[in-house]
Amino acid sequence: MIIADRKPLDEIVGMVSDAKKILVLGCRGCVTVCSAGGEREVEILASLIRLGMLKQGKKIETIEGTLVRQCDKEYIDGIDEWEGQYDAIVSMACGVGVNFIANLRPSTNVYPAVNTSFFGGSADQGVWMEQCAGCGNCVLHLTGGLCPVARCAKSLMNGPCGGSVNGRCEIHPDVECIWQSIHDRLGRIGNAEAMNTIAPIRDWSTAGHGGPRKSLRDDLTI
């Protein structure tokens, strides 16, 4: 899922400081699961924005809403329910949701309430770890299902580097050396010899270096 973290409150309050009425809009997708922008976080942020404005001696009205998804045109239409009731939208969705609303509501101010951080999973309660970089050219079949692009600090295709010590990355002892883990795992699944294959120079053109990427499924388009 997409992992996000709430922006600092002064930044959010600063965005809406001229507004009188705002729609604080959550998303029931990824940001609900990572507790950054679901229904509960919308309620909390709306309250904190009101308090932040009160601290400045201003009053702001908030409408709280949460859509099934903010990354889907059909669900974004749900904001019609509050049409004309707000000056600006504070979206608690990931950057995709903010962009979608901006695209589909060209005359509405839309502000992001979260920083979209990475693609990750829940490692423990309240802890999310990056697992995928969305590079567009998956090599997980060669690396035992563990991603060197997202999880190696240097995104090495032929690791580990010389900085790996006792299975830990040189950037921080808390970070596992994913290449050590790849090596160990390939051994366990009887494919250790795969480590002898030198990966060629990688083509990063699928990784967003050629502008916005697009996925088209002819069988689904009408």
Partner: peptide
Amino acid sequence: LQVSTLLKAFE
């Protein structure tokens, strides 16, 4: 107790 309940008390 929810965070929002405590914030509401401040409000």
